[in-house]
Design a protein around this nucleic acid. Structure first.
Lengths: 349, 349
DNA sequence: TTGATTTTGTCAATCGGTTGCCAAATAAAG
DNA sequence: CTTTATTTGGCAACCGATTGACAAAATCAA
């Protein structure tokens, strides 16, 4: 390619304006019936005579008809679009959530629109308001919004949350207790007496949740635990936390998520701090790449794919039954500890 | 979930059906003007008397008016939605592309809809057809479709591609030559005489493109090169290729992408094949996690974020100017070699 | 003051479906 | 062979905005 833009062909294909497809009126004409009959045949199977319907379907196929979702949305107010709000599309933790959500949405005949809040409550509010009129409902994953803001959205359209509990709003939360208990037991059995929680954003409900569970579990087994943070949930923040972690004198660190754990782990190794000899590191979620590190990252695995599926299915259920009451779903989804090389006996424990 | 769903509160908020907001008719009533005047005031600044417009805007604000995108889309045929088709949303190579695309779309006032083709031409065709009526245009990233299919989409709405060249369709392609030349020079200087290309899917244009460039570059410096594949572009495929790679007798492998390179690298290390001592490994793209491996993965870095931005900007340009002719954009975007530990001198070179 | 221009705002048609209401056609019952 | 019940299909209003055509009002010129 050259410095100047180079046309790959001379003429740009001419294109009909607007939706280029056939309408129900075209079908009606072809099939010799009224447009309303076409509409009924296509949307309410059984309402129309079998033979007529067959004729209409044939005409529709012949004309390569596709309904115009906007024309349909106008009278019905339903678009078959749903939004998935994530904190940061480039955070690998969302990959599997997005995939699960995609699957569930597609399966149910919905199209997923992904919105990115860029880790900011303001951006999240803006994005949510922008997308609201277009979608039938919205799934908030790891929302940073205030409870009141979520309630306000909920008053307009169906809203469900994941990794966040808001009164009156359906939520999908994995059961973190098993994983946390296993992790604390694991660290205890290795001989750790004093550990730290490298916390994430204070506005993240899940951050406080994990901290609370760790605290309980540690106290129960007589282990000391301190919180270091809050921090942003990134590789860089994990990296930057090394000095504070060392200063604290703990022998093991549990980070809010794998990104932070990996950042910390790599920074430690790079600075000659042996992992797990001098410092054990663990994270949450088991994201892509957590097993690439040396040593591999011990982590509390979250069933992200299933969570994505469940949150969307719950949302669709509420869209299709406005009378549905809010529920906490997914309580059957448990986390489990995945032990890799980043946790081990503390030197001279 | 426990056996029974557990309500988090008793009453589900009642919600008005349809779009709950005010309409231009409400504004018109409040401001004492005709609805069409409201429409003009809001969409064609200057067309309406300044004082009238101010009054209308005040009323709109007071009623918390938001335009109904569907009602607008019906007469105009424009939705301000654009689709980004990716081969697999969980492939980290798309993270940065998606992020760049998001940024560009948001900046221009568009909303991005991400569609996933699941690495399949059939799924891609289905997804594209489904999303077409809803969006103003579509960006195909690493499309698996036939040229004719892409042309057919292009005849309907603006279409741009990334990492794919189709006659008459605007494309965004990074300049892979510098990175490939650097890579071959790097391997040559280390003493490699015979290398392999671990190829990706044969339907991926970029796979053939990279293979062609590598072939040229290798031949130019008198290096032997063989193709191993095609393979699916995954960690697993990279892993599975180890035996064939070893059998080929080459001292270095360049994989179609980092996922494959990482899979191969990790499998080699796990099987006692020293990297880079017995085998040098390199990939393409520099995805998230490529630096986590031990040794780190040498790779030809692609400016994915910029590519995402550019492809969307190009698409928007074509949406807003239907007369625009197809161009190859991104002519300034070059790839560069990132050397990490996975490439080195072959033992007894 | 009158006529010519320009500005401002109204009317009404339109986009492509959906749906309540009703009449015609058909089937079942008497 | 009516009468009644049930299908089936057509008519027309409606969802909320946009826009061409045009009339009314305001501005300017002479």
């Amino acid at each position: 390619m050259t410095a100047t833009e180079e046309p790959t062909n001379g003429s740009s294909a001419k294109r009909k304006p607007g939706n280029s497809g056939a309408t129900i009126y075209d079908i009606a004409k072809l099939a010799g019936v009224n447009p309303s009959t076409v509409s009924r045949a296509l949307t309410t199977p059984g309402r129309i005579n079998e033979r007529t319907e067959a004729k209409i379907r044939a005409a529709a196929t012949e004309l390569n008809y596709r309904v115009n979702p906007f024309a349909r949305a106008l009278p019905t107010g339903r678009t078959k679009l749903i939004a998935l709000m994530v904190a940061n599309i480039t955070n690998p933790v969302f990959f599997d959530v997005v995939r699960g959500a995609q699957e569930a949405a597609t399966l149910a005949g919905y199209t997923l629109v992904i919105a990115d809040s860029e880790e900011s409550a303001e951006q999240e509010a803006i994005a949510a308001n922008k997308i609201m009129p277009v979608v039938d409902g919205i799934a908030l994953v790891t929302s940073r919004l205030e409870d009141e803001q979520i309630a306000a959205l909920h008053a307009e359209k169906p809203v469900v949350t994941m990794n966040r509990v808001v009164q009156g709003v359906s939520s999908t939360i994995p059961d973190s207790v098993p994983g946390v208990d296993q992790l604390i037991a694991h660290l205890g059995s290795l001989g750790h007496k004093s550990i730290a929680y490298l916390s994430g954003p204070s506005s993240a409900w899940m951050n406080n949740h994990r901290w609370g569970l760790l605290l309980d579990a540690a106290v129960k087994v007589g282990m000391n635990i301190v919180e270091i943070g809050p921090n942003s949930p990134t590789l860089e923040a994990g990296k930057a936390a090394l000095s504070r972690v060392r200063a604290s004198g703990v022998t093991a660190v549990v980070a809010y998520n794998d990104l932070m754990a990996i950042g910390l782990l790599r920074e430690a190794v790079a600075n000659g701090v042996s992992v797990p000899g001098n410092l054990s590191v663990a994270g949450f979620d088991d994201i892509f790449g957590a097993d690439f590190t040396s040593p591999g990252t011990t982590t509390v695995k979250t069933p992200l794919l299933e969570l994505g599926r469940i949150v969307i299915n719950r949302l669709i259920a509420e869209i299709e039954d406005p009378e549905a009451t809010a529920v906490n779903a997914a309580t059957g989804l448990v986390t489990t500890l995945v032990v890799r090389g980043s946790t081990g006996q503390p030197r001279q424990a």
